[in-house]
Design a protein around this nucleic acid. Structure first.
Length: 313
DNA sequence: CAAACGTGGGT
DNA sequence: TACCCAAGTTT
């Protein structure tokens, strides 16, 4: 009873402390973590890092923050410039939303990134994770910050399961809250450490348990590191069908691919592109028309005159 | 709530 | 080589 819950608290605080200790020697030196980075720099990094590897974000973030060191500097340029600077990071609507974040910061928040969770959540492209990441990493507030890495670390170290279950924001936040020290600064350090641990050691595919500071108390290890249940279908990667046939390709031939092909042409052009040139990137005229229209609807492309397209002004 | 949304890293 | 998965958000 008392002893039991006491040990439970000690264990959880130990997880936080061990992760933070490890972080001081194991963490990467990432540019957006360096002293002096503005809240805007943090916001830019968090948006870029959504579903995107660190190694791909680094050069784009550096160039972006050098060119647009403040929300006002980006808001002063056409959104098309943001889309161009986004390069091949993927999910280019994030560039449009980041430009909108800049505009909103200028119009509603005096040119600064807002500090409250509520105001952050009101920014386009800023959801539960990103709002908390900015509030904690840029403004040092005390909130749980739960991304896919943290969910996996907690699933293994605390719950003992091989992988994180489907995202359940409420329960995930409550679970991590239990691990955080009371002091905001320590809580922030814990969140970054858990994320880094998940990214470098407690990885999804081949975890480096021998190097992990939590391995001694990890519930998953203690249970014998059971393998995850086989064919778990993920949203974007459906498992084999009922007849056991090979799974369908996720990307080739999809609207996603065609959008990417089309947008790449617009991004690299300095002048409006004639539709005849866009016709070259994909043979199916109907799919081309559909995806081009979707790019325009998403604010990623703009029709110029009758037969030309360009990045939006 | 499931599906859509890019592009490439790592094994 | 496949194929999973990556600091998620929106509709």
């Amino acid at each position: 009873m008392i002893t039991c819950s006491y040990h439970r608290v000690v264990t959880k605080l130990s997880i936080a402390a061990a992760a933070v200790d490890w972080y001081s020697i194991g963490a990467r030196d990432l540019p957006w973590r360096r002293p002096g980075v503005s809240p805007w720099g943090v916001l830019v990094s968090e948006i870029m890092l959504q579903q995107t590897q660190v190694s791909r974000v680094e050069p784009v973030w550096t160039a972006w923050c050098s060119r647009w060191p403040t929300p006002a500097s980006l808001a002063a340029e056409p959104v098309g410039e943001a889309i161009r600077a986004w390069g091949r990071l993927g999910y280019p609507r994030r560039a449009v939303r980041l430009h909108s974040c800049a505009t909103a910061s200028v119009q509603r928040h005096g040119g600064r990134v807002p500090e409250s969770l509520t105001e952050l959540l009101a920014l386009p492209g800023v959801g539960t994770y990103t709002a908390r990441a900015v509030a904690v990493f840029a403004f040092r507030q005390r909130h749980p910050v739960v991304d896919t890495n943290v969910r996996r670390v907690v699933a293994r170290a605390v719950t003992g399961s091989p992988a994180a279950g489907p995202a359940t924001t409420g329960a995930d936040l409550a679970g991590v809250e239990q691990l955080l020290p009371a002091d905001p600064e320590s809580a922030a350090a814990t969140s970054i450490a858990l994320m880094e641990l998940g990214a470098l050691l407690c990885t999804a595919r081949a975890p480096r348990c021998p190097e992990c500071p939590l391995s001694g108390s990890c519930a998953w290890r203690l249970a014998g590191s059971p393998a995850p249940t086989p064919a778990a279908a993920t949203p974007d990667a459906p498992a084999a069908n009922a007849r056991g046939q090979r799974r369908s390709q996720r990307y080739l031939g999809t609207d996603r691919q065609v959008r990417g092909l089309l947008l790449a042409v617009l991004r690299e052009a300095t002048d409006p592109v004639p539709t005849a040139r866009l016709d070259l990137v994909w043979p199916d005229a109907e799919q081309r028309a559909r995806t081009l229209a979707s790019l325009v609807a998403d604010g990623l492309a703009h029709q110029v005159g009758t037969g030309h397209y360009a990045l939006p002004a």
